[in-house]
């Protein structure tokens, strides 16, 4: 095996750890409610929510909504709690449904 001098690690190798299978729940973005405020993005402890463009609103302004990267989401539910627009609901993963 290859080891580095003094156990130096390369940056961001954590990205290969898919933590998305940790939780029992997952967030679902209700796009029509999402105002693209970005609160869920700044609070997400797993850095797995970003705002993505989904066309334009009535006034022709670019419309952005939250999108979850389920590869890393641990289902903590923080996003759903901090969302002021009822745009994120938590659902139980199929595996854990009674």
């Amino acid at each position: 095996m290859k080891i580095t001098l003094g156990a130096v690690s390369r940056p961001l190798e954590s990205l290969k750890i898919k933590t998305g299978d940790w939780g029992t729940e997952y967030p679902v973005i209700i796009e029509e409610n999402c105002k693209g405020c970005g609160d869920c993005v700044v609070y997400c402890p797993d850095l797995c929510i970003e705002l993505v463009e989904v066309g334009k609103d009535e006034k022709g302004k670019v419309r952005k909504v939250a999108k979850v990267n389920y590869d890393y989401c641990k289902g903590c539910g923080t996003c759903s709690v901090v969302c002021k627009h009822e745009a994120i609901k938590m659902e139980i993963k199929e595996l854990y449904r009674g």
């Binding site: 954590s14 990205l15 898919k18 940790w22 850095l47 797995c48 590869d71």
Partner: peptide, 23 residues
Amino acid sequence: MKLFGSGHGACPGCGLPIAVKSV
């Protein structure tokens, strides 16, 4: 390049990654 990345081992709901990425 991201300054702090996903895939870390914090417990779900941990405050530390929020603090770190915000700093």
